[in-house]
Computed example of a mutant assay.
Amino acid sequence: METPHLVSLGGFCQVAFQLKRIGLKACSPYDKLITPWGALIKSLKDKAYAHGVYARPWKGSVRSGDILYHHDFPSKDGVYSTTLIHRIICQAKIARRTRMMDGLTGEVIFFRLGATRRAPFTYVYTEDDGAPTVEDFDELSAVLDQRFPQLRWRLVYAYYAHLSPAPAQLRDRRISVHALRRPRLRDPSQWQGDNGQWDEIFDLALGRPSRAFAA
């Protein structure tokens, strides 16, 4: 039985952390980025959009277009450096992750956390700004089909039920929706997420225990 690739589509680094926790290596340009819904669509259509060409410090992070780069630029005492050499290094890293994702074949399960419809947040785990519409998901399906014609893909969309309403009934059966409960964490903004709830999502997506990846 073919084992599907599990790949992050953002919108925050929590997805990549959880995939790494069950033993999977990073293979997506979205692993470390904060990508609002519109930025996801733009960057799937135009690979260069996510490369950080116009990166500048912004509200405790680094922003280029509508994407935040928390982890791809060096910082000291909370101040990020976006010099030309650091932008070139970032572009190279994002381009390498993009090539890894584009090189996938066979079955892929994409995972997306949250909508973040407008500008990116720097405190994304305690706020969101609405659910994607049916039309948003239809557009994403069409873009994924166009970008990855070699893949048999599915998409798991997860959202925090206390931050955002549930999406409407979807037309594409390749997309499933999972609500995350409010994490029982000492710090509600802890970025890693709730391991138990993510295990439930992975198990449902795979149809078997996801811990096998970490064996």
Rank of each mutant, 00 (worst) to 15 (best):
S81A: 11
I88L: 12
T116N: 14
Q91M: 13
K93E: 09
A92G: 10
G78M: 01
A92V: 01
I89K: 11
L113T: 10
K76P: 00
K76E: 06
A92N: 09
I109T: 10
C90Q: 08
A115N: 15
L104C: 05
T98H: 12
R117F: 07
Q91P: 02
K93H: 10
I109K: 04
I88R: 14
V79E: 06
Y80L: 13
I109Y: 04
A115T: 14
G103Y: 14
G103L: 13
I85K: 09
T105K: 14
K93P: 00
T105V: 13
I85M: 05
I85G: 03
Y80S: 08
I109W: 06
I109N: 05
C90D: 00
T83Y: 12
Y80D: 11
T105F: 00
R112I: 07
G78E: 00
E107F: 02
G106C: 06
I94E: 02
V108W: 00
Y80A: 08
R87Y: 03
I88F: 07
T82V: 14
T116G: 11
E107T: 14
G103Q: 10
L104S: 01
H86A: 12
V79W: 01
K93Q: 10
A95V: 00
H86W: 10
T116I: 07
I94W: 00
D102N: 15
V79F: 02
A115C: 15
R87C: 07
R112P: 08
E107H: 15
R99I: 08
T82A: 09
D77C: 08
M101R: 03
F110D: 05
R97P: 01
T82K: 05
D102C: 14
V79I: 10
I109G: 05
T82C: 15
I94M: 06
T105D: 13
A92D: 04
Y80M: 12
L113S: 12
I94S: 04
C90E: 00
L113C: 08
S81G: 06
A92R: 07
M100H: 07
L84E: 13
V108K: 03
V108L: 05
R99S: 15
